[in-house]
Design a protein around this nucleic acid. Structure first.
Length: 459
RNA sequence: GGCCCCAUCGUCUAACGGUUAGGAUCCAUGGUUUUCAUCCAUGUUAUAGGAGUUCGAGUCUCCUUGGGGUCACCA
């Protein structure tokens, strides 16, 4: 059975790039009817935070990517890691290193001065003398000293490094706490991972983890190292490039399906297809099809996708979503007609909420340019006559309102714009928006007349 | 700096070594719409540069350039 995972460290919010690799992992699991596990990498007690962990979990909930089984916390597995450290020590595959941090720093500086690669020199690898006083040793793994460490990567292809590139790295700190590369290898193996899909910033951790897999006799999973997402200039994505926190997208009025559709197309494609439902993604996704090159983040496409998913969304769904944006249409008998009049005009839920408010809340003021253009000449008189005609006709449907408009155009022998423009500004405050007949049907006769009279008073 | 990875329209991407280098987005223009938006149609824009292999290179090789990653008792 296919088992994949996402393994964030709880030091901040869920990053948009992290969500993409998580999505790739999740899709791989779903496609193969396998499992997608979640593991919190909280071995660094100093940097962890409970809030960060909750924020990550919340983001997953929002996008609807559920994980299988219980969330695994590395901080609760220290006994387990300790057992493996002791085992390696016993088998002579790991050893205690008494080098102080100062000595290590000095060594590093020396190597840098000689423009060499900085690496531990293995001085305690075969040490059997008397250890120096007052130093709590770290535990280092005996990494191979010659040959190459190689593996097949599903994205990058065959990948290998010189064994000399991997030094005897620390697997347990002086205080006994295990380190990242050590616990990742153990957990990935013990949790039964078949496919490890992660950012390619982990590419160089893989040889280290392979050293651990080999020392402990674990079978290797398949590795997929996905290239990073950069900003539009091809530079590393930072906060200055806009939102990097997944939950910011919720605040900005994006639908999770739009965000996921956007992300799945970064580094992956299926012919000319742009729109993917979750089901289609699951059916079509294969991590072996992930592109090697990094991709750049660009908001245009996300906005386009979001507009698409808003147009597709059902009224019930939009009613629920809009509640977070200050608009409550629950129980409003005109909800449906309001949404059909507005949903094509909003690229985000924020936009959509504004459009809805234009209809449900009378304009406070009139856009200066629009008013100047619309409230001139005989506009005042036309509006007044129109209000009278409405009061008399008491139309209800959109068609009935349209008939009244046609009537005034005919009787006064004017163009449609002569009534349309001033009416629009009176009702909406500016010259844009939904069809007038639609708007009036939503407002109702009383409210329409009220807004017209208010406008007339300002002319 | 050492080691490694990457390179097609502005952006996301497609193209058994053989296509007029395709689609989407963006932008522009036109149509529909009394307006805006939607929708539809049309158009502009790309194989980073240089060698080589080949009858034939976006695709294979090498160099250059550019970008990225990584070199912790962080994860």
């Amino acid at each position: 059975m296919t088992v994949t995972r996402f393994a964030p460290s709880p030091t901040g919010y869920l990053h948009i790039g992290g969500l993409r690799t998580a999505l790739f992992s999740w899709l791989t699991a779903q496609h193969n009817k396998g499992e997608f596990l979640l593991r919190i990498e909280d071995t660094d007690m100093a940097r962890n935070s409970e809030e960060a962990k909750d924020a990550i979990l919340k983001a997953f909930e929002w996008v609807g990517m559920s994980h299988d089984g219980e969330v695994v916390y590395q901080s609760k597995r220290f006994d387990l890691y300790k057992k493996y450290i002791d085992q390696l020590l016993e088998e002579g595959k790991a050893y205690k290193c008494y080098m102080s941090k100062e000595e290590l720093a000095a060594l590093r500086e020396e190597q840098m001065a000689k423009k060499e690669r900085t690496r531990y020199d293995g001085r305690y690898r075969d040490f059997d003398g008397t250890p120096p006083e007052g130093i709590d040793p770290v535990i280092r793994i005996k990494a191979p000293q010659e040959g190459r460490i190689s593996f097949k990567d599903g994205v990058k292809g065959e990948f290998s490094v010189e064994a000399t590139e991997v030094d005897d790295f620390v697997i347990a700190r002086a205080d006994g706490a295990p380190t990242y590369n050590f616990v990742v290898a153990i957990d990935d193996a013990l949790m039964g991972l078949t496919d490890v899909i992660r950012g390619d910033d982990h590419l160089y951790n893989t040889p280290k983890q392979i050293v651990i897999y080999n020392a402990l006799g674990f079978a290797l999973p398949n590795f997929y190292h996905v290239a990073m997402i950069n900003n539009e200039q091809g530079k590393k994505l930072s906060k200055r490039d806009g939102a990097t926190d997944v939950m910011d997208y919720k605040t900005m009025g994006y639908l999770p399906e739009a965000l996921l559709n956007f992300l799945v197309r970064l580094g992956w494609s299926h012919g000319d297809q742009e729109i993917f439902s979750l089901e289609e993604m699951i059916n079509l996704f294969d991590p072996n099809d992930i592109n090697k090159s990094s991709s750049n983040y660009n908001l245009d496409k996300l906005l386009w996708l979001n507009a698409h998913y808003i147009k597709e969304a059902s009224d019930e769904k939009l009613i629920t979503l809009l509640k977070d944006f200050g608009v409550d249409l629950e129980g409003n008998e005109k909800a449906s007609i309001i949404l059909t009049a507005t949903k094509e005009r909003g690229k985000t839920l924020v936009d959509l909420a504004e459009q809805v408010k234009l209809l449900t809340v009378a304009p406070e003021s009139y856009d200066e340019k629009s008013a100047k253009k619309a409230f001139k000449g005989e506009a005042k008189e036309i509006l007044s006559t129109f209000a009278d005609m409405l009061a008399l006709a008491q139309p209800i449907t959109k068609e009935a309102y349209h008939a009244v408009m046609e009537k005034i155009v005919e009787e006064k022998e004017i163009g449609f714009g002569k009534i349309g423009m001033p009416l629009r500004v009176s009702l909406m405050g500016s010259m844009t928006g939904a069809g007038m007949d639609e708007v009036m049907a939503i407002l109702g006769t009383d409210e329409t007349i009220k807004r017209i009279e208010k406008a007339i008073a300002t002319i």
